[in-house]
Structure formats: structure tokens, C-alpha cells
Simulated scan of single mutants.
Amino acid sequence: MATASIRPAAVAGYFYPDDPHVLQAQIGEMLSTAVPLEAVSAPKALIVPHAGYVYSGPVAASAYAVAAGLRDVVRRVVMLGPAHRVPVASFALPAAQVFSTPLGPVPISRKDWLALQQRADVVVDDRPHALEHCLEVQLPFLQTILDAFELVPLLVGGASAEQVAELLDTLWGGPETLIVISSDLSHYQPYAQACCTDRSSVDQILKLRTGLDHDQACGAMPINGLLRVAARHGVEPHLLDLRNSGDTAGDRSRVVGYTSIAFCESTSHAASARH
């Protein structure tokens, strides 16, 4: 495969270790010490944070620990996150066919890559992806908890919540598909204020109430889109972790908020599906 079709790791050695053995050990420790607030199984979708592992890794690990039971089931991961560095009109797919991390290559789903290009709101552009961290930092966790899987990586720019919802509907799939929404919560508030702000934002998510803004979460639009489709697909949110950088590795004067939330099939939906 031509080198040009590989998107190399951009933040290895910065957001997470670039040595594969050190990286594996760090992820293994975070997963083994994760204690999710709720016991859930077989999540269909996750909201996870995307800062450096020293800051948000333990929070992300609480989501990936509960998804580890899907190792033999999930073969396709749909990942949406905000474009931090390069403006994107609606959605950006990479031209690259492989994302590389210190743990090895992750292939892009060619079928989805081709199909998504037929949409007027999707552009194929490596530039927004080249230095973007929000999707990349999820990959070593996914490579650890899953067997071989294909990736559908999309950066979200000016898309509306309804556009995101419609896109997620087309990519929803069955048990073989896991949806990962990459987002932090509030940015650079004092600790006590951030705790209050983030708790309110999480309560809004747990009630499936759309309308999150970018002050509440940098991935507000991907989250709002997921909330729109969650009810009609019969999945319910469960809070796994809610902390901030003041709890993990930073000072408390200006913190960034993190949460992990799992969306699992509701018991009522599961029961009705059996009739």
C-alpha cells in the first residue's frame, strides 16, 4: 500500500506514549483500575474524552473497560469528533485508507468510505485529519479491547445536529458496529465552576435533551446528533465517569471537564424486540 494512503500518528509521544510497550502497559493499567459508576454491558455507543492520557485517560478507560466485552462482536467502529485545527463545512473523511498508531495500522472501511463520498455534506480531505488528536487518541484503546476492526473516521465542523443524526442513522449497523463520539466538556473554568457546569451538561445528556453548545462540550454537535437518534434506536445513556483535569493530573485554577457515557439497549426495547 502506498505510503500516501496512510495517516501516521500525529500526537504519539505527546498525548500518549510513542513506545508500543509503554503504551500497552499504560492502557492495561488504566483499564484494569477503571471502576465505572454503573455496571453496563454491550454498549452500542460511547461518549469519551480526548485529552492527553495523563489527564483524561482514566475517564476514557471507564468506557473502554465496559466495551471490552465486545471483543468478539465489533468489527466496525464509527468515530465522530470535532475538527479542532482546520475548518470543516460539515463532515470530513480522510483520503488516507489506514490510520497508524504505535500499536499498528487500523484500516478504513472501504465500503463506507466510498458510500459516504456520495453525500453532498461530506468532503474527502486529509488536512483536517493530519494533526487532529480527537480521533487518534481513541485508537490505542480500541486496538487493545477489540480484535481486528475497520474504522469510519469523521470530523464534524459546521454540521447541524440533524445532519449528524441522519448520518449516524445511515451508519448505525448492527451489533458489529460501535459508535464512538469523542468530546471533552467545559474548558478552562475554575474547578468548582467546572464541576457545576459539567454536571448540568451530563444531566442534559442523560435526559436525551439536545441543545448542548460548544461552551459545554467541544463535540457538542456530534453529541446532539447521537442524542437525536438514541431514542429511536432504543438505546439509553448510562454515566460511567465524570471528572476533570483537576481530579486527574492538573491544577484546579483552569480545568477541562471529561465524561464517559455508554449508550446501551434499553430493557423495554429489548423486551419488545423479543415479541
Results as ranks from 00 to 15, higher is better:
residue 6 I to W: 00
residue 9 A to T: 03
residue 11 V to R: 15
residue 11 V to E: 01
residue 13 G to W: 01
residue 16 Y to A: 05
residue 20 P to N: 08
residue 20 P to M: 07
residue 24 Q to S: 15
residue 25 A to L: 06
residue 25 A to W: 03
residue 30 M to Q: 15
residue 32 S to E: 15
residue 32 S to N: 12
residue 33 T to M: 13
residue 34 A to M: 13
residue 35 V to P: 02
residue 39 A to C: 04
residue 45 A to M: 05
residue 45 A to K: 01
residue 46 L to T: 13
residue 46 L to H: 14
residue 53 Y to R: 05
residue 58 P to V: 04
residue 69 G to D: 15
residue 71 R to L: 09
residue 71 R to S: 13
residue 71 R to N: 10
residue 73 V to H: 03
residue 76 R to A: 00
residue 76 R to M: 01
residue 77 V to G: 00
residue 83 A to C: 08
residue 89 A to N: 10
residue 92 A to N: 09
residue 92 A to M: 09
residue 95 A to F: 07
residue 97 Q to W: 01
residue 97 Q to L: 02
residue 98 V to A: 01
residue 98 V to N: 04
residue 99 F to K: 04
residue 100 S to D: 14
residue 100 S to P: 02
residue 101 T to R: 01
residue 108 I to N: 03
residue 113 W to I: 03
residue 115 A to D: 14
residue 115 A to P: 10
residue 123 V to R: 08
residue 128 P to A: 01
residue 135 L to G: 11
residue 136 E to D: 00
residue 137 V to N: 03
residue 138 Q to I: 02
residue 138 Q to S: 02
residue 139 L to T: 00
residue 142 L to E: 04
residue 153 P to F: 02
residue 156 V to N: 10
residue 159 A to R: 09
residue 160 S to V: 06
residue 163 Q to T: 11
residue 165 A to G: 12
residue 172 W to H: 09
residue 177 T to A: 00
residue 178 L to M: 12
residue 180 V to L: 11
residue 182 S to Q: 03
residue 187 H to D: 10
residue 189 Q to M: 12
residue 191 Y to P: 12
residue 192 A to W: 05
residue 197 T to H: 13
residue 198 D to F: 05
residue 200 S to D: 11
residue 200 S to E: 13
residue 201 S to A: 15
residue 203 D to N: 12
residue 204 Q to D: 06
residue 207 K to N: 12
residue 208 L to A: 12
residue 209 R to F: 08
residue 215 D to C: 04
residue 221 M to W: 13
residue 221 M to G: 01
residue 222 P to F: 08
residue 224 N to R: 07
residue 225 G to A: 11
residue 229 V to A: 15
residue 229 V to P: 04
residue 231 A to C: 08
residue 235 V to H: 02
residue 241 D to M: 08
residue 245 S to R: 08
residue 245 S to N: 10
residue 247 D to G: 05
residue 250 G to L: 09
residue 252 R to L: 03
residue 256 V to W: 13
